[in-house]
Structure formats: C-alpha cells, structure tokens
C-alpha cells in the first residue's frame, strides 16, 4: 500500500548567515551602483594587471613573484592605482594605526614611566590586540602644570590612570618596530568616565571629521559618543568626557579620588547621572553595538538616525538587539543610501 504523503522538513533557521545575506541584499537593492561584485575585488594570490608599460611600483598589499613576472595580491581587497603605484586596499583589515588617529583603549599595564594601553577589546586582556604606549611625559598632569616629570609623578601614575581605566588618546608616532606611541596632551583626551565601552570591528569607524559625537535627547541630557578609530567606542554621560571635567575647574583631584572607589561604569560623576540618563545611555550603547553587529558604518549620521528610529518606534533598550529592530535598522540604512544617490 503506497501512501501518498508529503513529508517536509522544517527548514533550519540560520540567523547569523541570514543577517549578513539579507542585509547585503536589501542594501544592494537600495544602491545598485555601490555594490561590490567579485570582479571588483582581488583575492590573495590573484595576479594584478599592471598595464602595458610593464613598469610599476609595488605598493602595500602586493608582492612580486619569484620569477619577477607578475604582481600578486597579498590581501583581499580593492586594487588602487596612482600613476604607476599599485596597491591593494584590504577589506576588513586589522587596525593599522596612523599618526593623528583618535583612539580609545584600556590601560592594561603601568610601569617604567609609561602606561600600556590595549587598543582592542577583549575579555580582561585575554585576547588583547594591538597595544599602544602612553608615556608619562605625554599626558597633562592634574593641575595643568607644564614641568619636568619627577619621580613623584612616576609614583603617582596610578592616580592619573589606573589599570582598567578607559582612556582616549591620539596616536603620536609609529615606531619602526611596530609600537604605537600615544599622547593625551590636549584637553579633550584623558580618562573616560561614567559610560560604557563598546567593541566593534575597527573598519566600521570610517575617517571622519568628528570623533566626539553628541546624541541629542531633547528634554533630558545628551549622550556623548567617542569613536576610536581602533574600533572601541565609548558611550557616556556628558560629564564623563575630559573636556567637561576641565570646564568644571580644578576639582580634578577630587574626581580622581572619587573614581578610585567607584571605578568605571558609574564612578566619578555620580551626581549628574539619573535614571533617564542611564536609559538613554543604554539605548545608544545598544544601537552602536547593533550597528557593529550588522557591520554598518558608524558615523554621527548613522548613530543618531538609529537612535532616532528606536525612539520613534518606542523600542526599549533591551529590545534593540532583537531581529525585528535590526531589520528596521537595515531598512533605514537602505533608505539613507537611496537618498544619498
């Protein structure tokens, strides 16, 4: 007896893959002219056409084969030519420090007149990535005195930045052995307080004019965002930024004392942080992290639009990471790209 029966197996839902594919599809529909195809990129080992003259300059991301015949890519990315110079700009590369970059990091070691700053997020330094070195002479000491750093200052280093503190600095110099020298001499750099550190892939933070952003929240106080080019983002209450601290006069030393006890999340400026502020802060934090997860670019525009969308839809901070809102976020990004075109 043959039973006519259709047995179907429920398709397994694969969320991660779907997110990348569906995001790609909706964004490529929105702006077909900016979609990368296989032909636009070279993979590792692909030969690069160098033109008729046969003479070329080997740039980053390329290598010449043993028989000196062909130029081959060493990373996966787009080919760029400037006159005879051929380079491959990698897609999704590791963070490569450049002089003048604003970076956010956490202090992971103190000693020998310098702080070691981890420039990549990770669980308690377990997979701490690139490191920067912040010299004692490269910071503004509390009190703004410009003088030689004495052994006393060296002993008091932990009062300025302790281990685990989030700091915001600028890349001063790249040494030939690969170490990155940082400085925090401007008033806008220094210890970051009363906020949250979010780790996103570094290639999402594009070169932009402003790294210190402000997300307005109408009636209640704004939330500040510091975009580090190394992929760490600090989302905080306005009082948590160094510049505001300077404006408040010389209560600096008091702040330091207070934050020693309170440490991190709600330390230092506990006075100004109320519940509505914390609510906004967590909303922004989750939007930034959602953008990072979707691999959408992080700029003033995308962040404020994302936050605006969440507020418009009345999405609770906890629901920002859920699929529905992520879809809406992608839709909005697609709309934005249509508008740009």
């Amino acid at each position: 007896m043959a039973l006519a029966m259709n047995v179907t197996i429920h398709p397994v839902k694969r969320k991660r893959e779907d997110a990348l594919v569906s995001t790609f599809e909706s964004l490529s529909e929105a702006s077909p002219s900016r979609v990368y195809r296989h032909g636009d990129l070279v993979s590792v080992g692909d030969a690069i056409q160098v033109g008729d003259q046969g003479s070329f300059l080997r740039g980053h991301g390329t290598r010449v084969t043993e028989d000196n015949a062909a130029l081959r890519a060493t990373v996966c990315g787009t080919v760029e030519r400037v006159n005879r110079l051929v380079t491959v700009r990698p897609v999704r590369q590791q963070y490569q420090a450049e002089v003048g970059d604003v970076v956010v990091g956490t202090v992971c070691e103190i000693g020998g007149k310098r702080w070691k700053v981890s420039l990549k997020g990770g669980r308690a330094g377990q997979h701490a990535g690139a490191e920067g070195v912040l010299h004692l002479s490269a910071v503004n000491l509390p009190g703004n005195a410009q003088r030689r750093r004495t052994w006393e200052d060296e002993l008091n280093m932990r009062n300025v930045f302790a281990e685990g503190d989030a700091v915001c600095c600028e890349v001063q110099q790249l040494h030939s052995d690969g170490t990155v020298a940082l400085h925090a001499r401007s008033a806008k750099y220094g210890k970051l307080l009363s906020g949250h550190l979010v780790c996103v892939p570094s290639f999402l933070v594009k070169r932009q004019k402003q790294n210190f952003l402000e997300v307005e929240f109408g009636e209640s106080s704004a939330v500040r965002v510091v975009l580090g080019y190394n992929g760490l983002v600090w989302v905080c209450h306005p009082g948590g930024l160094p510049l505001q601290k300077q404006g408040a006069g010389d209560i600096d030393s008091e702040d330091d004392d207070a934050s020693e006890g309170g440490e991190g999340e709600d330390g230092g400026h506990g006075g100004g942080v109320d519940s509505s502020c914390l609510y906004n802060l967590s909303l922004v934090r989750n939007v930034v992290s959602a953008l990072g997860r979707l691999m959408l670019p992080l700029t003033q525009e995308t962040i404020s639009q994302g936050v605006g969308l969440a507020r418009e839809l009345g999405v609770e901070p906890g629901a920002v990471a859920h699929g529905d809102f992520l879809d809406r976020l992608v839709e909005q990004e697609a709309m934005r790209r249509v508008a740009v075109e």
Partner: peptide, 18 residues
C-alpha cells in the same frame, strides 16, 4: 574557497561602505 572568501568580502565591503 576563493569564491566563498570573495563572497564574504564583497558582502562586507558593500555593507560597511559609507
């Protein structure tokens, strides 16, 4: 593998382009 890698990279490049 090359196709898979390029697939992934094109997607990432498109999504993260600004």
């Amino acid at each position: 593998l090359r196709r898979k890698l390029l697939d992934y990279m094109t997607k990432v490049a498109t999504i993260s382009s600004h």
